[in-house]
């Protein structure tokens, strides 16, 4: 499976302290390379690189996240500024 690069834009009530470490841990469990590009209480952008099926899995995990966070939606774009 070829490597893809995507930006996941996560929107919701994301202000809990637990969220960013949770996101980093989940990406690591999937063996994905990634960087957090933007983070505030309502939006987190992560650029990830890896097989497409694992980026899908990252989206699945982040749709839930830790209990004190609510994710409304995740947009995906395959043309991030990050190279």
């Amino acid at each position: 499976m070829p490597t893809a690069r995507e930006r996941l834009t996560i929107r919701g009530n994301l202000g809990a302290d637990s969220f960013l470490p949770w996101v980093a841990r989940h990406a690591a469990r999937l063996g994905l390379d990634g960087e957090i590009r933007h983070a505030d209480a309502e939006r987190v952008d992560i650029d990830v690189r890896g097989p497409a099926d694992l980026i899908d899995a990252m989206e699945m995990g982040c749709l839930l996240g830790p209990i004190d966070v609510w994710v409304d939606a995740i947009e995906r774009s395959s043309d991030p500024e990050w190279r």
Partner: peptide
């Protein structure tokens, strides 16, 4: 688990993820 921190849901698990989100909400 409503927090999948010790699991690895994939795209095939989408219905389960939607169910858990609905429960959580």
């Amino acid at each position: 688990p409503l927090d999948p921190g010790r699991e690895i849901p994939t795209r095939a698990d989408l219905t389960s993820v939607a169910y858990r989100r609905w429960l959580k909400r």
